[in-house]
């Protein structure tokens, strides 16, 4: 269908523009940072290398070229799939990210799903029984956790469940000293629980509060009142009209929160020494591993903006009032 094709093409075009913009800014930031790639590469060996040799390495890497030339060279390498070499892990950036994504995807994907499903359910329950004890408990939970930093929650969980109770492991994604192929699924899950809980808790409160506010609006709407006039019970109104109408905004928030999920995972993975993308980001930042840092920045941009695009498209598919052909502003239409 041409309308759909144009919609998708327009989105992809915008995505490409965004990626180029992020590439420029990220590259400029890396260039302006005090991190010197040669020093970072050499590490402790810096003492053995003289200024002439350093200049040689810099020339070999093209660091003596103008910044614009360097940028274009980097961009064309990116386009051909070459993300460079990670000095931190002494491996190609693509391999580093590949191995980390698997660990992070499980953590972030599950945390994302839980915060969506549990957050939405809590929001629906709180709004349905607005003012009741159920609503109060959920609200207090959501407000307290929405104002709590992830790393602090992570440390508390670690102190409680790993140190004091000893139920969960203290670190990592698998028992120390085992080869990757020897680790069982149960062991993986066991190591995943605490980071997952730490990461989910935050997302849940945000989705729950948002859903609750949206649901309350809907339950006060004309069509909810009319449903009651037709003899509908409170649960009937909440599920048929409330949850259905609140689902789209909740999904939008869920997709839009992908960026925060990345931010949260960096902190949570750091506290639990979980070998995912988040801890790789910190390591890359601390050691001045520019290629890895830039690649992660680009990857995150791609995922977050794809998430937003999906949210917008879902609106277009699920809300009958939106006509893509008419180019209606997608987010301004609410129930």
């Amino acid at each position: 269908m041409p309308v759909w094709f144009r919609f998708v093409a327009m989105r992809l075009f915008r995505l490409a523009l965004l990626l180029i913009g992020v590439a420029v800014v990220a590259f400029a930031l890396a260039k302006m940072s005090p991190v010197d790639p040669v020093t970072a590469y050499l590490g402790p060996n810096i003492a053995k290398v003289g200024p002439e040799q350093r200049a040689l390495i810099a020339a070999r890497w093209g660091l003596d070229q103008p910044v614009a030339t360097q940028f274009l060279a980097w961009l064309s390498n990116l386009a051909s799939g070459d993300f460079g070499w990670s000095a931190t892990y002494n491996a190609p950036v693509v391999d580093v990210i590949g191995s980390r994504v698997a660990a992070s995807a499980a953590l972030m994907g599950l945390a994302w799903m839980f915060s969506g499903v549990i957050g939405f359910s809590l929001g629906v329950i709180a709004a349905t029984f607005q003012g009741g004890w159920c609503d109060r408990v959920i609200r207090v939970y959501a407000y307290v956790l929405a104002s709590t930093p992830t790393f602090w929650i992570a440390i508390l969980l670690l102190m409680g469940f790993s140190v004091a109770l000893g139920w969960t492991p203290v670190c990592c994604a698998a028992p120390i000293g085992l080869l990757p192929e020897e680790v069982t699924l149960i062991q993986r899950l066991h190591h995943l629980i605490l980071p997952l809980v730490a990461l989910s808790i935050l997302g849940i409160s945000q989705i729950a509060l948002h859903t609750r506010a949206k649901m309350i609006d809907i339950l006060e709407s004309d069509f909810a009142t009319y449903a009651r006039a037709q003899g509908a019970s409170r649960l009937d109104v909440a599920l048929r009209h409330g949850a259905r109408n609140a689902a789209l905004p909740a999904i939008t928030v869920l997709f839009a929160s992908l960026g925060e999920l990345f931010g949260g995972s960096i902190l949570a993975e750091q506290v639990f020494s979980y070998p995912g993308l988040g801890s790789a980001t910190i390591a890359a930042g601390v050691r001045g591993d520019v290629p890895l840092l830039l690649a992660i920045a680009m990857g995150t941009t791609l995922v977050v903006s794809l998430g937003n695009t999906i949210a917008d498209s879902l609106y277009a598919v699920a809300d009958p009032r939106i006509d893509i052909a008419a180019g209606a502003p997608l987010r301004e239409i609410g129930p």
Partner: peptide
Amino acid sequence: ALVPQSISHLDPLA
């Protein structure tokens, strides 16, 4: 039975 005022009394998504 109630016959309400306006179209806004119908659920927009159904």
